[in-house]
Design a protein around this nucleic acid. Structure first.
Lengths: 343, 343
DNA sequence: GGAAGATATGGAAACGTTTCCAATTTGGCG
DNA sequence: CGCCAAATTGGAAACGTTTCCATATCTTCC
């Protein structure tokens, strides 16, 4: 019973294949009687038009390729959910793959997508060879970046979170609470705009008349171990810090764990803000003050963009706002500062 | 420059299309000289074989469809990551879509996958019409269920978590701590085997000589609001309970939040175990004792299964072990029981 | 009543592969 | 040197659609 084709339907309905095609795709003119008969026959035979045949002929598949660093990461997952939502409503399907931090793998995935003849690609790219993306564009595949843009491709359509604005808000908030020695813990070259955050951090500090203190700016690989090591090292080398801005949930977790391990009370001894949308922020002890990034909305916008992209080429990336969610992990800086590194 | 086909390559290399095809797919015999020349030409022209043409001819696409309830759910996300990993190593691509709790949407997605001519489908299915899946099987699409099996399809290949074993372990652990009035808070018909958990809960209780107390068995829809309402209601109607087993992270969160809201100390006033792998378990206050489900491994196994499925039909589902991770949210039942519902 | 236009319909040629089959070349060996 | 088998190659027929073009049927209005 497998493999009923348009010819089978045509024969069974006593019409030509062209007519069946018109009925199924809704284009062209078909008499009402014929349409109904064909539809009935098609349904009864369980006919499903082959996307392969159609795609081959029309040169469009309605497929969009989605490349993320890690499907298990909550930010990525939420982003994917956003993409899926609008893809569904736009009647197209999504090919998903994860590239980790590996540029070679990323290139391989892009190549696979190209072979599948996707109409567009949405990527949270690893920093890598710009050539991959240019090659895609050259064969008429729409490309939209999300979260970051590879160097040298600044003109391409993209959806970004307002990382800088988020960090700025966070630092404003902390200085407003009286903090002066604020550390910044962030990734080195990973998903999300660590660089943007770092720059914004510096700039905001200077606006407040605070000289950036290099010892308080630490970058770490985002592996759980490296993150923890970085956080612990920071606390121990700089017992005088009173607040931390952490970029990404991994580093945020590391900061909390390290603080707890060293018996530092949050927020009495140290205030912590995490830039990332962590679903468990209110489950944490204490509930975590965070800067959320609009992951889902980014996914939706990216998908819209990739579908409209062939038409217009936005020169400026779409930047979506971040939001400071004040909970309980930040407090005023206490006069009775931290009692050194022990206890 | 777009759209270089096998013919273009053949012409440029001065060979027939058949030869190019043989070179690209590695099959058949081609002289070394020819092979290299063709490869060079193909590379220089940026030729990428069209999966559409190939699929049309070979009747296999190497695509597998993946249907989950919610891409943003951490369990699903981890599962997806597992599927992606093994799909990649098996050289096939993954179409992803999320069906929420909507059987109609699920059917629509399945239909789309069928039109895309995927070789197989992996589904964490909504409870719905069995006919969808049977239709798929009839057109030679391998189907593997994950997490749950629709009623009436018990023979089909599936990968499950040992929910029953997990609950049993949890209840054993709690009774070992002296708990007698243990509540079970779980979903009504959602992802993951709520029914299995409920049955295992009852059975284990009886093994310990405890009569299941209907007032302590509550089911809730998994929306955040409903979950919270259910948890709060449970605490208030049964101030005598000393422990809760929550199925799924949503309900676990709800239980924690509700307990906190009512000023119940964990674990002094109430012990909590969540059956789900929550990445933030150690960030919680207190660190959460959980029963983890092997989401990633389930994804990997499901993917292997769907690729091997045509060959052998496993009559029994693959059941992967859960694991009790003891942290700090459970304690011995205190003689000074909870002081009523206030304070 | 007939012609012009609109409306329905079918045939056939792509779309880019793979693969069967036949043809050609090559090499070995009597 | 000539013949057989093996290796290499190309032509052409699918695979399941869409869509152009031509044809046939129907309106409708003079």
């Amino acid at each position: 019973m497998a493999g009923v084709t348009i010819k089978d339907v045509a024969a069974a309905a006593g019409v030509g294949v062209a007519t069946v095609s018109r009925v199924m795709s809704g284009t062209g003119s078909v008499s009402a009687a014929t349409r109904e008969r064909v539809q009935a026959v098609a349904a009864s035979m369980g006919y499903r038009p082959s996307a392969l045949g159609r795609g081959l002929k029309t040169q469009r598949t309605g497929g969009i390729g989605l490349i993320i660093p890690d499907a298990a990461d909550p930010f990525c997952a939420e982003f994917v959910a956003g993409v899926l939502d609008t893809a569904r409503s736009e009647n197209c399907h999504v090919l998903l793959d994860a590239a980790g931090e590996d540029p070679a793998l990323e290139a391989e995935i892009v190549d696979r997508f190209a072979q599948q003849r996707v109409d567009g690609v949405i990527a949270m790219p690893v920093l890598g060879d710009a050539a991959i993306w240019q090659a895609l564009a050259r064969i008429d595949v729409a490309v939209v970046f999300a979260g970051r843009i590879p160097p040298g491709l600044t003109g391409m359509p993209a959806v970004l979170a307002d990382e800088a604005g988020g960090v700025r808000t966070a630092v404003d908030y902390l200085t407003g609470l009286g903090h002066r020695r604020i550390a910044h813990l962030d990734g080195d070259a990973t998903l999300g705009g660590a660089r943007e955050r770092r720059e914004a951090f510096r700039a905001t500090l200077e606006e407040h008349g605070l000289a950036p203190d290099e010892g308080l700016l630490v970058r770490a690989r985002p592996s759980a171990d490296a993150a923890y090591a970085a956080a612990a090292g920071l606390f121990q080398s700089r017992p005088d810090l009173t607040a931390i801005v952490a970029g990404g949930h991994r580093l945020g977790e590391a900061a909390i764990l390290a603080a707890r391990e060293l018996n530092l009370r949050i927020p009495a001894d140290v205030s912590i803000i995490v830039v990332d949308d962590v679903p468990w922020a209110e489950l944490c002890d204490p509930p975590l003050t965070v800067v959320t990034r609009p992951a889902r909305a980014m996914g939706e916008r990216a998908c819209e963009l990739v579908l409209r992209a062939p038409a217009r080429r936005p020169g400026r990336p779409v930047v979506l706002p971040t939001e400071l969610m004040v909970r309980a992990s930040c407090g005023p800086v206490t006069p009775s500062a931290r009692p050194g590194r022990s206890r």
